[in-house]
Design a protein around this nucleic acid. Sequence first.
DNA 1: TTGTAAGCGTTATCAA
DNA 2: TTGATAACGCTTACAA
Lengths: 338, 338
Amino acid sequence: MKVSIKDIARAAGVSHSTVSRALSDSPLIKEETKARIRRLAREMGYSPDAGARGLVVGRTQTIGVVVTTIADPFVAEVVQGIESTAYEHAYTLILATSNDEPDREIAAVETLRSKRVDAVIVTSSRVGALYSDLLERTGVPVVLLNNHAERGTYSYSVRVDDVHGARTATEHLLALGHRRIAHVMGPAGHTPSDDRLHGYLQALREAGIDPDPALVVPGNGRPNGGERALHQLWSLAQRPSAVFCYNDMTAIGLLRAAREMGVAVPGDLAVVGFDDIPFASYTSPSLTTIAQPKFELGQRAARMALALISRHGTDGEEVTNVVLPGQLVIRESSGVSR
Amino acid sequence: MKVSIKDIARAAGVSHSTVSRALSDSPLIKEETKARIRRLAREMGYSPDAGARGLVVGRTQTIGVVVTTIADPFVAEVVQGIESTAYEHAYTLILATSNDEPDREIAAVETLRSKRVDAVIVTSSRVGALYSDLLERTGVPVVLLNNHAERGTYSYSVRVDDVHGARTATEHLLALGHRRIAHVMGPAGHTPSDDRLHGYLQALREAGIDPDPALVVPGNGRPNGGERALHQLWSLAQRPSAVFCYNDMTAIGLLRAAREMGVAVPGDLAVVGFDDIPFASYTSPSLTTIAQPKFELGQRAARMALALISRHGTDGEEVTNVVLPGQLVIRESSGVSR
DNA sequence: TTGTAAGCGTTATCAA
DNA sequence: TTGATAACGCTTACAA
């Protein structure tokens, strides 16, 4: 049923090593025999066994991708970018989902290690460091996406400049004349959360505004976090006139709450998000946001992983961390027209 | 560097087969030795080579997942469902993206075959049949998700009942008093598109309404298709008072166009979608739709794949195709309150 | 309870 | 230009 290189050898009356060479187009083999063998292989429905090959060559042509959940539009687009360049280089993706649960993070690392992936790309995990530690001593290159960590021998990162993006968002609101600008934070203990908060504070201070702690409220990166945040903000004696949300999901939840509460956006409250997920342009009002080059982030991460793989041992070309800028996309929710 | 079963054997002063047995918790090995070997394995940082094991046992504990694009919220949730049950059964996912390009579909099949995946799950492809053909003769079980095809020995499907869902959606609009109900179709040549159109027509006829061909307009399953569709519908002499869209993405585009064109929803036009993507409840007005049990679809597909794998050869338990019902979720866009 | 040996499907090293 | 043969890391009869 399953046809191997030996079956072909038998049928062709040659040795199995000749078949192996012919199939990998070795210059050692006579064109004539090559052709014959290739035809035979096709006819017999031969498919090379990647596992067996990996065993001997020491590479699996496989990249492990760890995400918290693929059901996050941001993550999905990043993975799309990874896949596209992996595909171009004949690499395959193994997907592992962590759900942000420590057990599953560990399990994911173990599995990927066992599958002997040539590299690992970790997207927006809270514990990128975990991977670096566990995998680095294995010698598996690790690329952290949107999660900086100490730079190790094998661990690199590609990310968007969160601080700068947050500043840009905040400056946009400042330029529109807002003085009481709130911020809904992201999930606690997440580097991007910290950085965006940081950028927000920086922009305020540079504008000579003393940040009001009451205007910085917790969130979780999901819609319900945004909803809760608006309730909290609206119960303040001194309400904000604008809010910069950790991400678009948060902003979308906040937008919905605003609708329910009769808070006019951008009239009563200008809103800016972060990420530019596909739906940002379909909300009502459409969402002003900082666009992350999601697909490109994925591409860069994949390219970096490939570079690290080929560099492996030979330590040739230098690989450096990548930081991409986010871009302000102005839509209705910040009410530029006001 | 890379420690193998033999290294452990040497360190433990036993043969490598003893190590193999100990690590797989064989009852043949004395508890004492087991413990010793396991400790050693941990200390030495041993990680079993899945490829090597697969070579001998004939299984890779891997499921291939083919999607057109992972950057589609519907697909992403389905994959999430697949991953979750695969994980529970110690299976790993290999992700292949086809972009709906024939070349890549072929390439995907070849790759997955080479990687010796134990089963393949294909999500919403136009050409599910292709996979059945190519893989079935290989003996790899194929599960088609939302894409029925001829039932083969190894090819099964799990899907949502599109006809029924479309009927439900249309009946909902009929019950609200609408008589001129339009339909924006999905991508041409896609089974779900046909089925949903079919259900829509069925519902109309049963209500004694002769379907007006002018009210059935083309779409593509994406927002811009919905936008174009509304322009087309609104240019009619006799406009519809309601529209059933192929899916939520289409409806969302249509909603945006409506906003731009000053068409009130649901006042001038009631809108119903299909899928219930996460954002359906965040649009404005929020979207009435037919909810597909996405996560469950994924789970079922994975379970079916696992069943097919274990049945393999032994032809034990019967496996039957799965059809899940969609559920009407009433929100604002159909204007129930009117 | 453990060890020996064969074999899974490849590639790679020597010889011929 | 081709063929033997070993090796990759593992499981699994078959012996002991």
